[in-house]
Design a binder for these strands. Structure first.
Length: 597
RNA sequence: GGCCCUGUAGUUCAACGGAUAGAACGGAAGUUUCCUAAACUUUAAAUACAGGUUCGAUUCCUGUCGGGGCUACCA
């Protein structure tokens, strides 16, 4: 039982024994004592006043006295207004370090036996290269998966590639017409970039045709778009594809292959990975079957034109199309199929979809449709909805060319890391390979931290003209703290392994050391909270706080130059513990930490 | 129109309904014979507005105003 449980149990025992009432459950929580007051844990006593019938101060004193008597680890308490600040005996903290020192998995739970979680993220289209929006998605998905794993869940990371549909046919068509047989191998271009070019080419050529049609008498641009020869051809290509036309499929395969090679490069750079990749081309048919199932069950309806619809909330305005009149599937059709497939593959207790908040409605609909189908996994669907990444001038728009390309961004970050590091001149003895590795760790770390420290559900702003900072509340700040500790540990060992034993006379424990231990103590709980909230931001903020505190300690107190050998060794072990927590926290964000920088 | 999200220093982000709303960047002023100054210290600067619930509201509720998204036989 953890010390917080011990204390809270003592509180509730005391209240019950003394007043014959159960303490309000909501009141039985401890918070971290704020810096400006002395103490480790704080109990807010206002909710107890009703029971004790005395003032908040008197109530706090009553509970405080009772706790001192009942909990051995407690040394003292103080009362400020209705706040009861509890201080543990220094021995508790010294012992806490001793108990956890050397545990490389501190803060992580072992894998549990419960139902697994499936986390879908990334989910790219094969007609466009990845951009900053995808970067947020990938980082969030990967990190949430890691955090859930650390909280003891079994996790499967899956990707769902949108590899079919009219948009793919557009880039195929443009490549057939204008591509002159260009390939990534003949041009040296990254595959996703090459294919993306033809998607753009389709749009520009289409625009020309639409312009001609408008001149020829069309009044509605929408209709002109639909009637344009290129659009007709694209639709024809889609029909050929669905009919299994060999030549069409061959081109489709080849072009998607190029794209996957490109994506994989980007994924490698990002450091994300998947346990399984689904392709829409392989799941949309199952989706159609589910629609048929719904028709049989009578929860969907077929119209005279053969299209299939579902009515939600008994509201005729809330009708959604599930199958087009020509029998082809729409977005939600294949999502029904993949949900089923995923359930059959993993029997998950939770299916997390990392998808932007512009699709909130879509996922509401998906869940309701699954409920109508009475699928056992309907309630397991969880949409991890995240806000968009905005530029100073607003939303990224591919048409206006304001999209921030993922690969370009990575390159810029790594380049900034190189320049910054070279200016500081601390790693001149590094080999070229070590340097390249370091710049990558730092540049990508800065980017990942920048994105993950923001609450997922909030929109965030990215300003391309101001590069991401390397000072202050940033990834490199945290990496720097880690590198500094590593340096101390190297020197402390200097050949021989560190003495494992932690011991210290209680009166020698100073305030900053105590603060650090108090913060380290919180890490396992932060991991669980972050898992419940699906929020890497909580991990990021925690890591920053810890590093901030360590840097203060580092500035105030010397570790290796401390004359008292017991204190010096204690500080080495404390530093080692901090570095473990920092490394573990950053690993949950998918961020590497360097031994030197 | 309907539905959903969101509004905190100049800027980018924090704050299970709890104490004097925290950081960072930028601004101002400092710290290096001492384990890495990508650090540390000091300083000015914010809860859009109006009600309500509560011992206590940035947080919950209502309204107004501002920003974003969705409301396709696109994905």
């Amino acid at each position: 039982m953890s010390i917080t449980q011990v204390i809270l149990e003592a509180v509730s025992d005391f209240v019950f024994e003394q007043y014959g009432e159960d303490a309000p459950l909501q009141a039985l929580t401890l918070q971290k004592t704020r810096k400006e007051f002395s103490g480790d844990f704080t109990l807010v006593v206002f909710p107890f006043v009703k029971i004790t019938k005395v003032s908040p101060e008197a109530t706090a004193k009553l509970i405080g006295d009772a706790l001192i008597e009942r909990v051995d680890e407690l040394q003292s308490y103080n009362v400020i207004k209705g706040f009861l600040n509890l201080s543990l005996h220094p021995n508790f903290w010294i012992d806490y370090l001793a108990r956890n020192s050397g545990n490389a998995r501190f803060g992580f739970r072992p894998k549990g036996e419960g139902a697994p979680v499936v986390v879908e993220y990334s989910s790219p289209n094969t007609n466009k290269p990845l951009h900053l929006g995808h970067v947020r998605n990938n980082l969030l998905g990967y990190s949430v998966a890691k955090i859930l794993e650390a909280s003891g869940r079994r996790v499967y990371k899956v990707n769902l590639v949108n590899d079919r549909g009219i948009h793919i046919c557009k880039s195929m068509l443009a490549w057939i017409k204008y591509g002159k047989g260009r390939t990534p191998y003949t041009t040296g271009m990254k595959g996703d970039k090459l294919v993306g070019e033809y998607y753009v080419k389709f749009e520009t050529e289409l625009k020309i045709q639409v312009g001609e049609l408008m001149l020829a008498g069309y009044t509605d641009e929408e209709i002109a778009r639909k009637d344009a020869p290129l659009m007709k051809e694209a639709q024809e290509l889609l029909r050929k594809w669905e009919d299994g036309d060999a030549q069409t499929l061959a081109i489709w395969c080849a072009m998607n292959g190029w794209v996957y090679e490109g994506f994989n490069q980007t994924y490698r750079k990002l450091g994300v990975e998947f346990d399984k990749t689904y392709y829409e081309s392989e799941t949309y048919l199952l989706g159609k079957e589910l629609v048929m199932e719904g028709l049989k069950k009578g929860v969907f309806e077929k119209r005279s034109d053969n299209s299939v619809w579902v009515t939600l909330n008994n509201d005729p305005l809330d009708e959604k199309l599930l199958l087009r009149s020509d029998g082809t599937s729409v977005y939600i059709t294949q999502d029904l199929g993949t949900a089923q497939l995923r359930f059959d593959d993993f029997y998950p207790g939770e299916m997390i979809y990392v998808v932007g908040n512009e699709q909130n409605y879509h996922f509401e609909v998906l869940q309701k449709v699954l409920q109508k189908l009475r699928k056992p996994y309907a309630d397991a669907v969880y949409h991890l909805s995240y806000g968009m990444v905005e530029l100073p001038e607003g939303k990224m728009k591919s048409r206006e060319g304001t999209v921030v390309d993922a690969d370009d961004l990575f390159e810029e970050m790594v380049d900034t890391a190189r320049r910054t590091t070279e200016e500081l001149g601390k790693v001149q003895d590094f080999s070229e390979e070590e340097k390249a590795q370091l710049y990558n760790i730092l540049g990508m770390g800065a980017l990942k931290y920048f994105i993950l420290k923001v609450d997922p559900k909030k929109n965030m702003l990215f300003n391309p003209s101001e590069s991401i900072d390397f000072n202050g509340n940033t990834g490199p700040f945290i990496q720097y703290t880690y590198a500094r500790i590593s340096s101390i540990l190297r020197m402390a060992q200097s050949g021989k392994p560190l003495q494992a034993k932690v011991q210290l006379a209680p009166e020698k424990l100073n305030l900053l050391e105590r603060n650090l231990l108090r913060t380290i103590f919180d890490f396992p709980g932060v991991v669980l909270d972050a898992a419940n909230a699906h929020s890497p931001a909580q991990i990021a903020n925690y890591a920053y706080d810890l590093c901030k505190e360590y840097n203060q300690f580092y500035h105030e107190h010397s570790v290796l130059n401390e004359p008292d050998p017991q204190i010096s060794h204690f500080r080495v072990k404390l530093s080692e513990m901090v570095s473990t927590v920092v490394k573990n926290a950053m690993s949950l964000l998918g961020i590497d930490v360097p031994e030197r920088m």
